[in-house]
Design a protein around this nucleic acid. Structure first.
Length: 441
RNA sequence: GUGCCUAUAGCUUAGUUGGUUAAAGCGUCGGGUUGUGGUUCCGAAGAUCGAGGGUUCAAGUCCCUUUAGGCACC
């Protein structure tokens, strides 16, 4: 329960209608109090049915600042799953993505919880950063402990206790990046189990089956990825063509397995655009994916070794060919702040990356201006300042000094990685929030 | 007092019958990381081999003296 003294501030949200004009602060406060019983701190968005006013379904995003509740956005939502798309002058767009377990606001950054959890963080800590969606990896969970086990333990939600939406990767990337022994055929990819040594076959159908059994809310088609080595045009072309053949099989399998599900209970399937750095292939690939029966468009095969300029070039190029269908665009594997900004300003709605959490565990954190610092540097040994005084993450607001964090990293105390993961995630989420129609106070 | 053992980078050690710029781990310092093989990866600095003398073309390696620490015996 919020203390009576807690005030309510509503941002001047000119780009969003009609909440702040229709509803007085007091009115919102009345029902927010009920909602806040469950969530003590965070930026979770939630919806509330206001029966007295036109039966509007509104989604609110809020945060605490100095013990005040601040509504950072209020949006009207209809029934389709990607709604309220609002383009901005800078090329970005904000919207609401409706999943079967809740709505999230885009643009959105999604941390990778490879094995069912974001490393070193509890779900509550992840929530506190404003993260709305978490990724899990099909490849890892399939190998260990297996999708049947995860399913028996309540699916990815019950398993890792993340209440928000979960997106699973197809497993394709890991097979290509982590498995030394692998054989790619038209049927699928055969690879050696890294632990048991036995050969496993993952097909497009199998990947969809696993992801559905895991209980994921958003799933990704099994694609053929190139770009990890010096690739020839022939390889790129082959991967590109195979990706599209596999996409058809993924869609068919997805439709078969979800045919009896109510529409609102179906996960969202993302098709993957490939084509390497070849613009013609990229354009055609986008065209093919967009003309397919998929709920979302994923851009794959970037941030895998090419230069930033090359990646930017492709992202910029693709903006000319996105269609008008209300589908989210998901850029796979990008998490460097400047890259995130560039992607969002070129029409990307969703991104995931291991960078914030991996860097954090290795003592590298972002500070204002997208600069990164190494907390283990000796100059921080007696530095009593927080990572970033302008940051509102738990770590910075609690006052953990750089000197303290440096010491904990030096003695390998895991808490240091946890605290910095919270900071880095918050940093990326704040970038996304800047594009959601306005900046929180 | 006598005998024996040890002494190599900040720490712990490797250095083969004496043979090219004395090696490694940890630590220190710096960097990398983009659909995550948990506590990672890469690089750098850092040693006049306890000290002094001798033998030899050549000594961390052999000899002598000496210093410090350890063990054993008087």
């Amino acid at each position: 329960m919020l203390p009576r003294s807690t005030g309510l501030l509503i941002n001047d949200y000119t780009s969003f209608w009609p909440a702040q004009t229709l509803l007085g602060g007091l009115y919102i406060y009345e029902f927010l109090v009920e909602q806040f019983k469950a969530v003590k701190r965070g930026w979770l968005s939630f919806t509330h049915q206001i029966s007295s006013i036109n039966s509007l379904m509104l989604t609110y995003s809020y945060k605490y600042v100095n013990d005040c509740v601040i509504i950072t956005s209020v949006m009207d939502v209809k029934n389709t799953f990607f709604k309220g798309i609002k383009p901005a002058d800078d090329g970005s767009r904000s919207a609401i993505l409706q999943t079967r377990v809740g709505r999230v606001m885009t643009p959105i950054f999604m941390p990778d919880g490879t094995r069912g959890v974001v490393k070193s963080l509890t779900p509550e800590q992840v929530e506190s950063t404003g993260v709305q969606v978490v990724l899990a990896n099909t490849y890892h969970l399939h190998l260990q402990p297996g999708e049947q086990v995860v399913s028996a333990l309540g699916g990815v939600h019950g398993f890792g206790k993340w209440r928000g939406p979960i997106l699973t990767d197809s497993g394709g990337f890991q097979i290509f990046s982590l498995s030394k022994l692998r054989k790619i055929t038209e049927e699928g990819v055969e690879f050696k189990h890294p632990v048991t040594g036995e050969m496993r076959l993952i097909t497009p159908e199998k990947s969809i089956q696993i992801q559905l059994e895991l209980g994921s809310d958003m799933i990704v088609a099994f694609d053929h990825l190139t770009g990890l080595d010096n690739k020839s045009r022939k390889d790129v072309l082959e991967a590109y063509e195979r990706t599209h053949r596999w996409l058809e099989r993924c869609i068919k399998e997805f439709e078969r397995l979800t045919v009896d599900m109510p529409e609102e209970q179906k996960p969202i399937l993302f098709g993957v655009v490939q084509g390497g750095l070849d613009k013609e292939l990229r354009r055609k690939s986008l065209e093919i994916v967009q003309s397919s029966n998929v709920g979302g468009i994923a851009i794959g095969g970037l941030s895998v070794g090419e230069t930033k300029a090359e990646m930017y070039d492709i992202l910029n190029f693709l903006t000319n060919y996105y269609d008008n269908s209300p589908r989210p665009r998901f850029l796979l594997g990008v998490g460097d702040p400047p890259d995130i900004r560039y992607a969002i300003e070129h029409g990307i709605d969703m991104l995931d990356c291991v960078l914030p959490t991996r860097n954090a565990r290795h003592a590298t954190v972002w500070v204002a201006g997208d600069k990164k610092i190494h907390l283990t540097n000796s100059k921080y040994i007696d530095d009593n300042s927080v990572i970033d005084p302008g940051c509102d993450c738990y770590t910075c607001e609690s006052g953990y000094s750089k000197g303290f964090l440096r010491h904990q990293f030096k003695v390998k105390e895991p808490l240091a990685g946890t605290l910095c993961s919270i900071h880095n995630l918050r940093y990326l989420v704040r970038i996304c929030e800047e594009y959601r129609g306005g900046q929180p106070a």
